[in-house]
Design a protein around this nucleic acid. Structure first.
Length: 507
DNA sequence: TCATGCGGGCGTT
DNA sequence: AACGCCCGCATGA
């Protein structure tokens, strides 16, 4: 993944946004002056123009779990977001964060994935569908025209980021390597019980709670399943992630402990390693809490990731990324209310038709916590075969109040990624007429309003009966849920986007 | 096994 | 007609 700053800049200063075009235009801009750098986490109504040489663009990659959608147009590839898979119990990972897996793209694989249990608490996994586009999944369009690849995104993801594809691949490959290296040491361990080793990572296997855990892992053929006994040092980008191994911490864990990759989103079953996060922000973070339903089924999964990493160390790219995102997103409103940020587009003409609808207004940092749009057909379609049942069982916005830990998460939850900042800076949404913005969000006067000291449920997690969900047009109600005591966001202050003037203290 | 892409077909708006 | 989505099929890693 490119440097956070690089991506941020890429997304924020999209060249594609400076030109007037729509993916459905008969004629696309010819011979673009230059191209945008690939943005892995596009969010909002953004457009990019990539070089046809851009490999990632050629592959139509995205950090979001996007599946192909038939739009009956062979010239334009359309993809819709699948959302994110989380633990139905919203259990906290060892580090306090929440599980946020990348939904399998393949329907069959996804169903299988959802049948697996949360690797942390063994309760059911739940798919949080994306409904960021007027109640429907956010859609991405790709169109190759000449030497350019035009990309257009519609909708604002109303859910946490899942593990990115690259992360998933990295994790899986790492797991394979770990598995390979695990078995041998493990065998030795079984033969040589408790030898007293505690320093050597390769010997942490003996600390694995019980062999049953291992067996469980073995039984689960899913390569994505976290592998216990993985040395902390083997994680990718370990340099960025400050983790130490602490056998004592590990001991006592009954469930498959997690081992975190340098990348805060990735977790592996904890081995005798624990993490010593370097920053205050570590407390935990998953902002995206899932308060909805109680565990229902008894999954058996293994693929997991962690998402919010805010918690994770502040020194890591991720922490920065998130913190930055957070701030930028939080402040993203400011430009709309006041003056636009540098390079901000102002051509209303580019506004998506939906822009006039409240649902399309810029979302607050905690947009995924917002209530569902009035019409949420997604519940019937998107969730259909996979999570429909879950919704029925969902608890109402359980308005769970969280502790400081949660607060920390909220911070991270408010930001998606540096790349997402474009939403804060350029999105047409920012150009929305003031009336629309104010009507749709209480944050009109502030980047982020924190009406309560607690969060409410994510909109998609709400069990609104179809047609009964509160309308976003009402605006304010959508924001009832906001982070509280964001003060814990200590780490965010030093990375505030220059484009925004709001103080982090507000959060 | 799974990610991707394609495209037929169906229901809804 | 436009959309969203389900499904099956094919291909490639």
């Amino acid at each position: 993944m490119p440097a956070a700053e690089g991506q941020l800049a890429d997304c924020a200063w999209s060249y594609g946004m400076k030109l007037s075009w729509d993916i459905n235009d008969p004629q696309m801009p010819q011979k673009p002056a230059h191209f945008d750098r690939f943005c892995e986490w596009p969010d909002g109504y953004v457009r990019f123009i990539y070089s046809s040489e851009e490999k990632k663009a050629q592959r139509h990659l995205s950090g979001w779990a996007m599946r192909n959608t038939n739009n009956h147009n062979g010239h334009i590839l359309k993809k819709s977001c699948l959302g994110v898979v989380v633990c139905a119990q919203d259990c906290a990972l060892p580090d306090g964060s929440r599980l946020q897996l990348r939904p399998a793209i393949c329907d069959k694989a996804r169903l299988k994935q959802q049948k697996k249990p949360c690797p942390n608490c063994h309760s059911a996994l739940e798919l949080i569908p994306c409904r960021g586009h007027s109640g429907y999944p956010v859609t991405n369009f790709w169109r190759l025209d000449g030497n350019a690849i035009f990309f257009q995104a519609k909708g604002v993801h109303d859910h946490p980021r899942p593990e990115s594809k690259s992360e998933t691949e990295a994790r899986r490959s790492a797991i394979k390597r770990q598995m390979a290296s695990f078995y041998q040491p493990q065998k030795r361990r079984i033969r040589e019980p408790e030898a007293g080793e505690s320093q050597d990572h390769s010997r942490h296997f003996n600390n694995i709670p019980s062999l049953e855990n291992l067996e469980g892992l073995d039984v689960i053929p899913d390569a994505s399943f976290p592998v216990p006994g993985q040395p902390c040092l083997s994680f990718p980008n370990s340099d960025a992630y400050k983790a130490t191994c602490d056998l004592t911490t590990f001991q006592g864990d009954i469930v498959p402990p997690f081992q975190k990759y340098s990348n805060p989103r990735i977790y592996l079953p904890r081995t005798p390693c624990s993490y010593e996060l370097a920053g205050p922000g570590y407390t935990n973070s998953s902002p995206y809490t899932t308060f909805y339903k109680d565990a229902g089924s008894i999954p058996k999964d293994s693929d997991w990731v962690h998402l919010n990493a805010l918690q994770c160390n502040v020194n890591t790219y991720s922490s920065f990324e998130r913190s930055f995102d957070f701030t930028s997103k939080q402040h993203g409103w400011k430009p709309a209310l006041g003056k636009a940020g540098p390079g901000e587009r102002t051509d209303q003409g580019q506004f998506p038709p939906e822009a006039t609808h409240p649902q399309y207004t810029p979302q607050p940092p905690c947009r995924y916590l917002a209530t569902a749009p009035p019409t949420a057909p997604a519940l019937q379609t998107v969730i259909t075969t996979t999570t429909r049942v879950s919704y029925q069982a969902c608890q109402p916005p359980a308005l769970k109040c969280y502790d400081n830990v949660r607060d920390a998460k909220s911070l991270s939850s408010c930001d998606y990624a540096s790349e997402n900042t474009q939403m804060s800076i350029y999105p047409e949404a920012l150009d929305l007429p003031a009336p629309v913005i104010t009507a749709s969000s209480p944050t009109a006067s502030l980047p982020l309003k924190i009406p309560r000291d607690c969060w409410t449920v994510r909109q998609h997690s709400l069990p609104y009966p179809l047609g009964a969900a509160p309308s976003r047009t009402d605006g304010a109600e959508s924001w009832e849920v906001c982070p509280s005591r964001l003060g814990s966001a200590v780490n965010y202050s030093d990375r505030v986007s220059p484009f925004f003037s709001c103080d982090n203290e507000n959060f």
